[in-house]
Structure formats: C-alpha cells, structure tokens
Amino acid sequence: MKVHVLTTPLDDEAVARLRAGDMVRLNGILYTARDAAHKRLVETLSRGEPSPIPLAGQVIYYVGPAPAPPGRPIGPAGPTTSGRMDPYTLPLLERGVKGFIGKGYRSDEVKAALVRHRAVYLAAVGGAAVLLAQHIVSARVVAYEDLGTEAIRELVVRDFPAIVVHDIYGGDAYLEGQRAFRQHP
C-alpha cells in the first residue's frame, strides 16, 4: 500500500498522485467543520459574503472534537459521518477546497463533483479518536465560536493518517475493498 506524505494546502499535482486505497500522512493546517458550521458557511457564501476561512487548496476535516484536557491542544477528535455534509460540498469545491476528511459514503453527486474539481475524499478511522488527536499539534477556534464543538477550528497536524476513498479518477476504496469479500449475489 502506497503512503503519501502531504503538506497542506494541496495543489493539483499532489492530488493527482493519490489513488483510492492509498494512505496519506497530512501535515500543515486542517479546518474543522461539521453540520452547523457547514450550514452557516454555505449560507454566508451564497449571500456573496467572504468566507471566514481560506478555502482554495484547503482540507476540511469533519469533526466535532471533545474538549481539550488540561495541558493538551484538543480532546479526542475522530471523524464524523461525511454524508450529512453532501448538500454543502459543491459550493466548497467550487471555491477550491481540495480535500475532505470524514468517514462513510458520499453521494454520487459529490463523487462526480470531486472528479470535476480535482479534489479528494479521505477517511480517517472512526473510533480511533484518541490516537488521531495525538497527531494534532495545536488547535484554535477561527470562526463560529458560539457553535461549541461545531465551531470552525484551525488544526495544525503532524503526519495525520487517512485513507484515500475517492480520488480524481473516480476510484472508490469502499466499493473496491468490499467487492473482494462480498458473498451475496
């Protein structure tokens, strides 16, 4: 299995090297956003107002972290289910977001849009929240503080592990992985 060490923001070249099923280790900045932040962000953009965070080349992590214990930057922080963010994903792709990290299936519409906009969908291991938080060096709220765990945070990560699910060629690591073990007709 291929492992790519990447630094955000991502450019087209870096994204083009990724294939469904590859592992990545992310370094640099990730922006957190889940349900409520997506709703507010996309409403802001649709009114023509500026985004509170940079979007071009950026990677968004679908997570609502646990509170930071004393002396740590963040609490356990595993991925949440990505499909709930499908209705908000196209406007973000149109503004140049290059990667999304979460877990679970995406809609056909999002899969096609990822190909069109040359962006990738990555999965982090759900339920490995404590281990994943160890790769987060720092965290600060940069927008929507009133949303609590759902606020947008800027995370600085080191070797944050994820698996490429959807690449820019239409590859699907879930489909391909499951096919080998499916015993139903």
Partner: peptide, 13 residues
C-alpha cells in the same frame, strides 16, 4: 458478515 463491508467499510469478513 457475508456482505463483506468489513472494518470501517474497507472490505473484510
């Protein structure tokens, strides 16, 4: 388990 979904959906028994 015959669905083949596996741990985290990446395929398995």
């Amino acid at each position: 388990n015959a669905l083949g979904i596996g741990p985290q959906g990446f395929g398995g028994t």
